[in-house]
Design a protein around this nucleic acid. Structure first.
Lengths: 340, 340
DNA sequence: TTTTGTAGTTTACGCGTGTAAACAAAAAAA
DNA sequence: TTTTTTTGTTTACACGCGTAAACTACAAAA
């Protein structure tokens, strides 16, 4: 591999001049620039990234934390990751996958201090997320998919617009004539970490439900599909007036749907189902296909990465993609008018 | 951040001694080792990975190619990726996500030459995969999830055992009494790249079908669920004797299932469905839940990464995880005895 | 006694870049 | 003309580590 010295020799200039042509941090005359560029092309020169990182103190590598629970990873995380990785690539950065079983960031901080990582993107952000504090204290830039709250003014993030999402959901469900609606979220009792999305959506649903004349009944269960099955029986037996379920619990939603199918409960005839958290790519496997308001995961990953990198470069925060994404309602086969 | 010099000073030895204590490449006396280790601990010393990479010529970073088509990424890829990333992490390596729209590896080679990448893991490997040649020619170590063929003796890979998978599928389906079985694969006509898995499975199905007294009818269609829907009509109309479908096309399989549900075709009463390529985590969304023989994706990713890294380190190839994985049959709700 | 060997440690330098500071040449000001 | 400023380029070194080669102290062999 050709080095800067080779380029300098071929172009008949000093090594520093080559560097300055590349970075543009000093003015170099037109003819010299041309000579250097030609030499670089001829030698197929690529600056050594390790040397750049060592000398410059920046690796241009960021990490994406994949929170892996016992049950595996949420598939939407892959889409966040791909969006972020692709954006990073376009900007000359690289994204390393960082699976974690617990929520510890110790190893991550150690790696960042060793010079490999310039920044980190976090998912499944809690309202009070100690990881954010720990990373910041260690001097590591943090980007969020999601956000802490409510003082997030100085944070770098891309998140859903829960107010709009809840509004759209309630508007649509109410337009179908539903009055008694279950809102099914993930279980929070006994959990040390409550993802911020849950709190925000719950609050927004309460307001939007009222505004659209819907009675929102809050339920929660674990993300296991079996829990979704039990939940179906529960509402059929104890809350027969409920005619629609809005869900922020993709695992339970598919279980609910499966149970409805096998018990010949008509969907959407008897019960309409709308999921607010099922990734698009997952919907294709459901039957009948779920109506959703889903996060534009790829775009959100892209946005978070671009914002983090802009911050790393000290670049202006203009010309960046959206920060809040409502996601759009896609009407499929699990929602319909309430039966007369 | 503390450097080697700090440690050396505190321990009262030279910098080289510190390095040799870490790497163990020279013999260092017990008392000195103890002094150095204590100094490292006290200073919370972490070798700078960029300096290590520059001086040592190895970055201990590998890339994982995510082939992203227009339709998105196969979700099984996430599981491969997590397995590989976790294995890499355990071994002191890191894995960067490398999304590619086409199958070009030019940019990847350039990045490897710039010193950032020691090796690459490839997915969706074709029988004659030019990427493998290109990367090898550029001096980049390659690990495969899948394999080229048939001369793969010197290659580093983890792949499915298609012979066993096909055998298990045919044995089970035949035990249910099915005689006329469709085998549904992805479309190959007009495609420049044929994934090796397809060719191998087809060949194995032919043999195993014969051995189990099953008539295998080969079909192929695109991975679009809509194609799966059309396919259902096609076999019902033109091949009514077929009572089971074995699929190597997850997209079409879910479409098929959806169409069967909406047309009230009984599954598995009228038609049994067995998928050989649907990732476990995807199955939870199907209704009724698909019977599968699925690749143990996480373990395969783990194996591929461990093998690649062992090769990078020049380590022995012993004590490595399996190379060929058949995956186990998980009987769920879409298979049953043929109707009398 | 001298020679040879060995274990343990240090010296010395290279890896390829970023960039502050020094410098030279040409242009502008005095 | 001399002095100052500006522009363009180079010199010099730091970044933190890996490791070959040199060295020291001491034991063993001749």
């Amino acid at each position: 591999m050709a080095t800067r010295a080779d380029v300098a020799k071929l172009a008949g200039v000093s090594e520093a001049t080559v560097s300055y042509v590349i970075t543009g941090k000093r003015k170099i005359s037109q003819p010299v620039q041309v000579r250097v560029n030609k030499a670089m092309e001829k030698l197929d020169y690529r600056p050594n990234r390790m040397a750049q990182a060592l000398a410059g103190g920046k690796s241009r590598v960021i990490a994406l934390l994949f929170p892996t629970t016992a049950r595996g990873v949420a598939h939407v995380d892959l889409e966040y990751g791909l969006g972020a990785a692709q954006a990073a690539q376009e900007l000359g950065y690289h994204l390393v996958m960082w699976p974690t079983l617990d929520r510890s960031v110790d190893e991550l901080i150690a790696t960042a201090k060793s010079g490999l990582l310039d920044g980190v993107i976090l998912m499944e952000v809690a309202l009070e997320d100690e990881r954010v504090q720990q990373l910041k204290k260690a001097g590591i830039k943090v980007g969020l998919i999601g956000r802490t709250g409510p003082e997030f003014g100085d944070e770098i993030f891309a998140d859903r617009d829960f107010e709009t999402a809840a509004y759209d959901a309630c508007k649509y469900i109410s337009s179908l004539g539903h009055k008694e609606v279950a809102f099914l979220t993930e279980r929070t009792r006994g959990k040390s970490v409550v993802v911020a999305a849950l709190t925000r959506t719950k609050a927004s649903m309460k307001i939007s439900g009222k505004n659209h004349g819907i009675n929102i009944h809050n339920f929660e269960c674990s993300t296991d599909p079996d829990e979704g099955r039990k939940f179906l029986k529960q509402i059929l037996d104890h809350k027969p007036k409920i005619t629609a379920v809005i869900g922020l619990n993709p695992g339970a939603m598919v279980g609910l749907l499966q149970e409805a199918n096998s018990q010949r409960i008509e969907v959407p005839g008897r019960l309409s189902l709308l999921s607010m958290a099922t990734p698009e790519s997952f919907v294709s496997a459901t039957s009948p296909r779920l109506t959703t308001i889903s996060p534009p995961a790829f775009e959100m990953g892209d946005s978070a990465a671009r914002r983090l990198i802009a911050s790393l470069e000290g670049a202006s925060q203009d010309d960046l993609p959206k920060q809040l994404w409502s996601g759009s309602l896609v009407i499929r086969e699990t929602t319909g008018p309430v039966r007369a």
